[in-house]
C-alpha cells in the first residue's frame, strides 16, 4: 500500500486519461449492452415473449447479471479511471464491493432458508 508511485504520479496519470473518442466508444458499448438487457427481457418475459423466448428463461438471470456486471466494470474502469489511476483507489473501492456482494448473497441464503423451513414450520 506504500507509495507505489513517485510523488508526481497523480499529475502524470491525469495526462494519461483516455481521449474523448474512447469515452464515446464506451458510451456506445454501454448503450448496446443496455439494449441487450431490455431486449432479452422483452423476448423472454415481456411483450414479445414467444415459445423461443421461453427456452431462454433459465439463462435470463445469469445473462442479465453478467451484462450488468460488464456495464459496471466499464464505467468503473474507464469513466472512473480506475484502469489508469493508482491501485490504491481500486483497492478502496473493490474491497468494500466484495464485502457488499458477500453480504447480499449470504443474507439471501440465510433468509431463504428461514422462509423455507423455519417460518413454514
Amino acid at each position: 500500500m506504500d507509495a507505489h508511485a513517485p510523488p508526481t504520479a497523480a499529475a502524470a496519470h491525469d495526462a494519461d486519461h483516455p481521449s474523448s473518442g474512447v469515452y464515446v466508444k464506451i458510451g456506445v458499448v454501454l448503450f448496446v449492452l443496455t439494449a441487450l438487457e431490455v431486449g432479452l427481457y422483452e423476448f423472454t418475459y415481456g411483450g414479445h415473449a414467444g415459445p423461443a423466448g421461453q427456452t431462454l428463461q433459465p439463462f435470463f438471470i445469469p445473462v442479465l447479471l453478467l451484462l450488468s456486471a460488464a456495464k459496471f466494470a466499464l464505467v468503473a474502469m474507464y469513466y472512473m479511471h480506475l484502469k489508469q489511476d493508482h491501485r490504491l483507489f481500486s483497492g478502496v473501492f473493490v474491497f468494500p464491493l466484495v464485502i457488499a456482494t458477500v453480504v447480499i448473497v449470504s443474507l439471501i441464503v440465510l433468509q431463504a432458508y428461514h422462509f423455507a423451513f423455519a417460518r413454514s414450520g
Binding site: I99, V103, L110, Y113, A118
Partner: peptide
C-alpha cells in the same frame, strides 16, 4: 469480524450449515 455476525443468533434456528 465480517464473517461471524450470526453467532449472536444461534438461538434463532438458522439450520446446521449456517
Amino acid at each position: 469480524g465480517f464473517g461471524v455476525w450470526s453467532h449472536h443468533m444461534f438461538t434463532t434456528g438458522m439450520g446446521p450449515i449456517a
